[in-house]
Simulated scan of single mutants.
Amino acid sequence: MLLLTHPALARTRLLSAADWDLVAAFHARCSEQNLLRRWGRTHLTPRDLTRLLTQSLCWIGLDADERPLALVCVGPVSGESGVVDLGLQVADDHHRQGLGTALALQAAGIARTGGVHTLTAYTQASNAPMLRLMERLGPSRRTRDGPHVEVRVALDALASDPRPSSGAASP
C-alpha cells in the first residue's frame, strides 16, 4: 500500500486482476475524453487489466466510501534498465485537486526506492494536465513523436514539494 496523504483519499492499495469490478466502477466515473486520453479508447476489458498487471504495478485510490478515485501504474519501458512508465488516471470530478500529483510523487518515490532512475510518460501532446504534472515532478525532457510526446523525469532530481500550477490545489 502507498503511504499517501491527500484529503480525498482514505487509502490506496495494490490492484489485482480480481479487482475488475472496481476498475469498471472507476471507469464509469470517467468521461470518454478522460478514458481516451489515458487508454487511447473508451472501453477496457478484464483481459486488458490482466495484461497491464503482468507488466506493471498498479494502485487504486479509494475514498472513505471505498469508491475508486484514481488509478496509477508504473512499469518497465521497452527493456530500458532503470526506466519505468507512469500511467495515471483521476476521476473527472477530482481533477485539479492535487490528487494526481500526490499519486505520481508516491509512485515515483517507490520506483526510485526500487532502483529506477527515470520516470517516463508517453501521452498526447495535447494532454496539458499530464505534461504539467510531469514538469512538477522535476526537470523533464520532452521528445515529440507526431501527435504524442514522451516526457522523461530523472528521479534523482525528484521534487519533494512540487508547486502546483495556477488553479490547482496543493496535495
Rank of each mutant, 00 (worst) to 15 (best):
L2S: 02
L4C: 09
H6S: 09
H6P: 08
P7F: 05
A8W: 01
A10E: 09
A10C: 05
T12G: 02
R13G: 00
R13L: 01
L15C: 08
W20Q: 07
D21Q: 11
L22R: 11
L22V: 12
V23K: 03
A24L: 05
A24P: 01
A25L: 14
A25Y: 09
H27E: 15
A28I: 09
R29W: 08
S31Y: 13
L35T: 10
L35R: 15
L36R: 15
R37I: 08
R37F: 10
R38Q: 09
W39D: 13
G40N: 07
G40I: 13
G40T: 09
G40E: 08
H43I: 15
L44M: 07
T45M: 09
T45N: 07
P46I: 12
P46C: 04
L49P: 00
L52I: 13
T54E: 05
S56R: 15
C58F: 14
W59T: 03
L62W: 01
R67V: 08
L69D: 00
L69A: 00
L71W: 14
L71T: 03
V72I: 08
V77Y: 06
E80F: 07
G82R: 00
L86K: 04
L86V: 07
L86G: 03
L88G: 11
D92F: 13
H94Q: 13
H95W: 13
H95N: 13
R96D: 03
R96Q: 09
G98V: 05
L99W: 03
G100W: 03
T101C: 12
L103M: 07
L105Q: 14
Q106W: 01
A107V: 02
A108P: 02
A108R: 01
A108T: 04
I110L: 15
I110A: 12
A111D: 00
R112N: 00
T118C: 10
L119R: 00
L119H: 03
T120D: 05
T120C: 12
T120Y: 04
Y122K: 14
T123D: 13
Q124V: 05
A125D: 01
S126H: 14
A128T: 11
P129A: 06
P129V: 06
P129W: 06
P129D: 02
L131G: 05
R132N: 07
R132F: 07
L133D: 02
R136Y: 03
G138F: 01
G138V: 01
P139E: 15
R141L: 11
T143D: 15
G146V: 04
H148I: 06
H148F: 13
V149S: 02
V149P: 03
V149W: 01
E150Y: 10
V151F: 03
V153R: 01
L158W: 03
L158R: 03
A159H: 04
R163G: 09
P164D: 00
P164K: 01
S165F: 14
S166G: 05
S166W: 12
A168H: 15
S170H: 09
